[in-house]
Amino acid sequence: MLEGVNRVLLGIVGLVLVLLGGSVLAIGLGAPAPSWWPHDGRHDVLLDAAERTRWRDEGWWWPAVIAVLAVLVLLSLWWLLAVLRRRRPAEVLLDTGDEEGASLRGRALEQALAEEVSHLDGVDRAHVLLTGRRSAPRTRILLRLQPRTGPATTLRALTRGPLAHARDSAGLPALPTEVRLHAVTHAPERVT
């Protein structure tokens, strides 16, 4: 949904900017100004001295300008953070082979994959995060390994087991995965 809202907002802002900029350019190049245009001709400035200083002495003017600009900045920051935030797909499209397809909740796939990964030998705890698009999901897996567990062995078991199973059962051509390994530290033992 955020992608759709993002595209609509960008389209509206782009259209307004192109229309305003194009009309200013056309009038500046000598095209006749439409009747609704606030300026008279080619050599007229957008804001003359009287328009720039008209509200300067009013007590409400500067607080209103600052409030509007602050709201615009906050909305722009919210929009930027929403765009830059890593999106988690709510569902993953599955290939069922009948050209209809099906969808699986993203959280259900995360939980099932985390459960299967946590049962691997040497894995103390697993956390799975699904990112990417509905049709091309990606996974991030955080593994906490028990002491004296070989990371290479765990990665091979992860690739051949849970990841291959998730990829095949979802009918995905690939399931790109980023794995982060952390070793569980144990308390020092007292030797007597």
Rank of each mutant, 00 (worst) to 15 (best):
D168H: 08
R125D: 09
E99A: 04
V8C: 09
R42K: 14
L72D: 08
D168S: 10
L145H: 12
P188A: 11
L10R: 12
G14I: 02
V18I: 07
E116K: 06
R107I: 14
E91H: 07
V13S: 07
L142R: 12
L9A: 13
E99I: 00
I27C: 04
P137D: 02
H182K: 11
L75C: 09
H39W: 13
V184H: 14
R190E: 11
S135V: 07
V16W: 03
A114V: 07
E58T: 00
V65M: 08
R105K: 04
P151H: 14
H186K: 14
A114E: 08
V191Y: 10
G101Q: 02
V92D: 01
T154L: 15
A183C: 11
T192A: 05
G14W: 01
A164W: 07
V45Q: 09
R105H: 05
L158W: 04
R52Q: 11
G150Q: 15
R140T: 12
G101H: 03
S76L: 08
G21W: 02
R107V: 14
V65P: 00
L69N: 08
R134Y: 00
L93V: 09
R156A: 15
R52L: 13
R7Q: 12
N6L: 08
R180F: 05
R134L: 03
V8A: 13
E110Y: 06
A126S: 06
A31D: 06
G97Q: 03
L15G: 04
H165M: 08
G14P: 04
P151A: 15
L129F: 02
P188I: 05
L130H: 00
L74Q: 08
E91V: 06
R85W: 15
A108D: 13
T159Y: 06
E51Y: 05
